[in-house]
Design a protein around this nucleic acid. Sequence first.
DNA 1: TACTGATGTGTACAAGTGTTCACTGATGTG
DNA 2: CACATCAGTGAACACTTGTACACATCAGTA
Lengths: 209, 209
Amino acid sequence: MADKQRRKPGETREKLMSAALALVGKGRHFASLGIREVTRQAGVVPTSFYRHFRNMDDLGLQLVDELGLVLRRMMREARANVLQADKLIDESVGIFISHARNNRSFFMFMAQGLAGESRAVQDGIRSEMRYFASELANDLRRLKVADHLSDADLDMTCDLVVRSVAFSLTDILVISPEDEYQEEQVRKRTARFLQLIFVGAAHWNSRPE
Amino acid sequence: MADKQRRKPGETREKLMSAALALVGKGRHFASLGIREVTRQAGVVPTSFYRHFRNMDDLGLQLVDELGLVLRRMMREARANVLQADKLIDESVGIFISHARNNRSFFMFMAQGLAGESRAVQDGIRSEMRYFASELANDLRRLKVADHLSDADLDMTCDLVVRSVAFSLTDILVISPEDEYQEEQVRKRTARFLQLIFVGAAHWNSRPE
DNA sequence: TACTGATGTGTACAAGTGTTCACTGATGTG
DNA sequence: CACATCAGTGAACACTTGTACACATCAGTA
């Protein structure tokens, strides 16, 4: 072998993470993956695994970090594209679904991790969701929609929004990626969910408890 | 051994299902369980497994059926206890949380199965949720709340309600069963989610779009 | 009573598992 | 240049895994 280590540093690490993600994308559950299986998929010898991760949970944790990047990219795109507040929901749902389509494995990993067996991964994903919700609340404050809501109520609303969208993940991920009709159904339904929530938020203080 | 088969029929089957559930309750993910592991936990020889199930997915499917029974029992209790419509939300959320507490493993299995690796189990759980939502819609129709909503809109609302409650599972199941304070927090938050949704539903037709 | 099917047991085996060890070549630093 | 570190390799280990097979015991039935 002439070029055994001619690779740039961290390449194997990424190959391993991609391999795990690829297996998840093929329908496997992350919790059922083994070290040997992942290294095999990555085309790497099993011992290499330990050069980068202590165990599978560790790899999962680092995947959560990368997931955070994906989510931030998505948020940035949403901020850039949502100009008028009246199209906010439809645009955002559309962006979310297209990201879910383009990063299928990542979002599958996220859906799995929410009820996964590693507590640390679970907490990581939940924390990403909280961050996302709080950023959404900030954006809404900036856009001056829902000015009548208290901070706590706005936070709650955004939390519910993020949860509803996250649950839609389980809808998107079970339909095949080519089935555009069903994807459109999910898109519409998710958008209506959010509309319902925002109607509720609009009338919230008029019936505070 | 005097009493090798003195057991009533189906006992081993139940022991195996309980064993799998027990392992899930201990924090393991169902997808990572093996046949030998389950039989070991059940105190049964590995070969016995095949007398009742073809593989672990099969066992999972039968667990979904039992999960259906648990949910129906919960629904019955809710119907018996919710007398006035104004206490509907708080009562129902309370009943849900107490069931989640008393059947922790079952609900963990449910939360896991939603993004699990067996498509059949996934579909089974989703179908249970749809059934639950449609029953809820029927109840609300009977109670004459939300008379102004079309059938489709009421269905959507109930769908969102069921999803929100289901998502709260991931909140309940990560906190330790003794932590009553945090449990109370989850209870309150879930109830407020539902209130928000119902406020939205109450004003829905005024902004049908 | 003899037969049949369901349910249980023990043994066996090939394949796969996580992890350790000693070794090798490349890379960057004094 | 010498040297330490990093990131790769293959061989070996002790176990675990899913599954097959032959056999034993019971319940019900003809």
